[in-house]
Design a protein around this nucleic acid. Structure first.
Lengths: 336, 336
DNA sequence: CTGAAAGCGCTAACAC
DNA sequence: GTGTTAGCGCTTTCAG
C-alpha cells in the first residue's frame, strides 16, 4: 500500500505538501501541485481515509435512523437524504430499528463514539430527556415525526391542516357522514390527522360521531377490517378519510366486496401519495407529502449544525398538496 | 473526552489491559476485568472507534450499491442485508447510484481507500474487467443481478425457470395466445424472463408470435401503454405475462378501461410479489422473489469472504414461488 | 496474565 | 509556499 510519505519522497516534497495538494490545493504553487498530482497518479496512491478520519476526528458520515426501510415513505425520505448528503460530500450510514426503541438507543453510541458527524431520525421513540442530552452534544435532526417539548430541529408537514384539507374536500363533495380511519394513536402523526379531521367537521357545523372513528395501524388489512366494521353500522358513512394510502386500499377493497362502488357509493381520501395511490383502481385522492424534499431539507439542516451555522427557526413545515384522483368522486371516471 | 489511558490509570492497569477487556475479555483475569469494567462504567468511557478502525484498518462497515432505494424490491433486499449485517456487528453504508455507472465507479474508491470492508452490488453496470480486478482485491458480492463471465459470488433466483412457471400456469389455464411484456431488454433479468416465456411456449407446442412480445421499462405506465397496443391487434392475447408487478397493474388498468374484465376476459401474471400485488384489485398472481432472504444470503457470503473462509459454490440460486391470486383466473372471485 | 513500547498514516501548528 | 515535527488513541507484538 503506497502512502503519503512515498509520494512525498518521490516528488521531493514533504508529506505536508502532499497533504495540502489533496485537501487544500490552493495553498500550493501550481508547479508543485502538478508535480505531486502526477506522482499520485503514477503511483496510484489512495489516501488512507481512516487515518484522516482518525486524525481529524470527523468522518463525513451521517447516521439515518429509520423505523423500517421497507416502508415506501421512509425509503423516499432516505432517497432525499442520500441525495443531499452525496452533494455535500457526506455518506449515509443506515440504521434500521424495526420500530424498537432499544435499537434507537444502541445507535446513539455511534454518535458518542464519533463514528458519525450527525444523525437524522425518522422516528423518535426514545426518551425526551435522553434525546435532549444528545442534542446538546451532537448534531441531530428529526423528520417525518416530531416531539413536543424538545427543541430539536424538525422537518415535517402540517398534518393537522392537511387532514383538515382532506376532510373538507369530502365535505365539499356533499358528504356529511364521513368516517376516519386513524393510524396508531400513540403516534403524534396519527393524533394530528385525527385533530384535522375533527376541526374540519366542527368548522363546517357537522355532527361529530365517535363511532365513525376507527383506529388502524397503517396496514392494508387494518383498513379492510375497520371498513368492514363501519359498513355494518346502522347508518354507515358515505365517505372515509383514511390516515394513509395503504389503509385506503383496504377500505376500497372492503367496500367493493360489499357491493359498494367507489366513489359512487363511497368516497375515499387517503394520505401520503405513495405510488400505489396513483396506480390503484380507482386512483386514490390523497395528500401528497413531499418525502424526497423532507429528506433533503433534513440533511441541509443537519449540515448547518455540523458546520456550526447559527440556525434560524427550528421547526420547518413543508408544503403538502391535495391530489385529486377518482376515489373521492370529484374526478369520477368509470373504468372496468 | 475520556480515553483509554485515563481508564488505565484510574484502574491501575496498563492501556493494553483495558484494550483486552474491551476486545478480548477472556484474556484477562476476572478480577482485573471486573475492576476495569467498573471504571469504564464509572468514567463513562467511550472507545474512540475511529482510532480503532485506523489501527486495525478495518471498519466493520460494508457498502451497498443500490440503483434506486425508492424501489420496493431493492429496499427489501437492503432490509435483508441490514438485518444480517447488524447480527454480525457490521454497519451498512448506503450508495444510491440512480442507475448511473459513474456513481458505481466512484464508490469503488471506498473499497480502495479501505473505508469499508466489502461491497454488495444490487446492480452491476460497470465494466466486467474493472469488476474482476476489484474482486481480486476486495470482498464483493452481487445480488438481484448477475453477470456472465465474471466469477463473482452471486445470489439470484432462476429467472428463466420462474418465468417458465408463470407462463405455464397461464397455459394450464387453457390460454394459447399469451403475450409477454418484458423489462428493459438490456438487463439480463429481462432477457431471462423472456427466455423462460419462450421455453414454456415451445415446450407446450404453442406457436410463438413476436407481435405478442412488447418491451416495457418496469413502470406502470409502460405496462399500460404496451397493453393498449396489444389490445389493438387483430387477434389480441387472452393472457399476459408481465415481467414485473408494477407493469401488471398497468396491463390490468388498460384492460379494464377497454371494457375487459380481469381475469374474465384477460388473465394476467406478474413478477416480484411486491406488496402491491396482494393489495391490488384483483389480486395479482405473481412469482415471489425472496428479496429479504436474498439480501441476507448476500451478506452472509460477503462475511465469508471478509473472514477469509473458503467459499464453496459461487452462484447461489434461491427458491421462488408462484403465488396464485385472482388475476390469472385460477382463483376467480368476483368483487366490485 | 499483564505491561512496555512502537507505530498505524495522516494533519496542522509552527517555523522558516 | 514549503518543511519539520508532534501527536491523534488505539492495538499488538514481545517480554516477563
Amino acid at each position: 500500500m503506497v502512502k503519503m510519505s512515498d509520494v512525498a519522497e518521490k516528488a521531493n516534497v514533504s508529506k505536508a505538501t502532499v497533504s495540502r495538494v489533496l485537501r487544500n490545493p490552493e495553498a500550493v504553487k501550481k508547479d508543485t501541485r502538478d508535480k505531486v498530482l502526477a506522482i499520485i497518479e503514477q503511483m496510484n496512491y489512495q489516501p488512507n481515509i481512516l487515518a484522516r478520519h482518525f486524525r481529524r476526528s470527523q468522518t463525513n458520515t451521517i447516521l439515518v435512523v429509520v423505523p423500517n426501510i421497507m416502508n415506501t415513505v421512509f425509503s423516499h425520505i432516505l432517497g432525499g437524504i442520500e441525495h443531499a448528503a452525496g452533494e455535500n460530500g457526506y455518506r449515509v450510514l443506515l440504521a434500521n430499528t424495526n420500530k424498537q426503541v432499544e435499537r434507537e438507543y444502541e445507535y446513539l453510541d455511534h454518535l458518542k463514539q464519533r463514528q458519525v458527524d450527525g444523525m437524522i431520525l425518522l422516528s423518535a421513540r426514545m426518551d425526551k430527556n435522553v434525546l435532549t442530552e444528545v442534542m446538546k452534544q451532537f448534531p441531530v435532526v428529526l423528520t417525518a415525526d416530531y416531539l413536543e417539548g424538545v427543541a430539536i430541529p424538525t422537518v415535517t408537514i402540517d398534518n393537522v391542516s392537511s387532514a383538515r384539507t382532506a376532510t373538507e374536500h369530502l365535505i365539499n363533495m356533499g358528504h356529511s357522514r364521513i368516517a376516519h380511519i386513524t393510524g396508531p394513536l400513540h403516534l403524534l402523526v396519527s393524533q394530528d390527522r385525527l385533530k384535522g379531521y375533527r376541526q374540519a367537521l366542527l368548522q363546517n357545523g357537522l355532527a361529530f360521531d365517535n363511532i365513525l372513528i376507527q383506529e388502524g395501524d397503517f396496514s392494508h388489512e387494518s383498513g379492510y377490517n375497520q371498513m368492514t366494521k363501519l359498513m355494518a353500522l346502522e347508518k354507515p358513512p358515505t365517505a372515509v378519510f383514511s390516515a394513509n394510502d395503504e389503509m385506503a386500499t383496504g377500505v376500497i377493497k372492503a367496500a367493493k366486496e360489499n357491493g359498494l362502488s367507489v366513489p359512487g357509493d363511497l368516497a375515499v381520501v387517503g394520505f401520503d401519495n405513495i405510488k400505489l395511490s396513483a396506480i390503484y383502481d380507482p386512483g386514490i385522492t390523497t395528500i401528497a407529502q413531499p418525502t424526497f424534499e423532507m429528506g433533503k431539507k433534513a440533511m441541509e439542516l443537519l449540515l448547518e449544525q455540523i458546520n456550526g451555522i447559527e440556525m434560524g427557526k427550528r421547526q420547518h413545515v413543508l408544503e403538502n398538496e391535495l391530489i385529486i384522483r377518482e376515489s373521492c368522486g370529484a374526478n369520477f371516471k368509470k373504468n372496468g
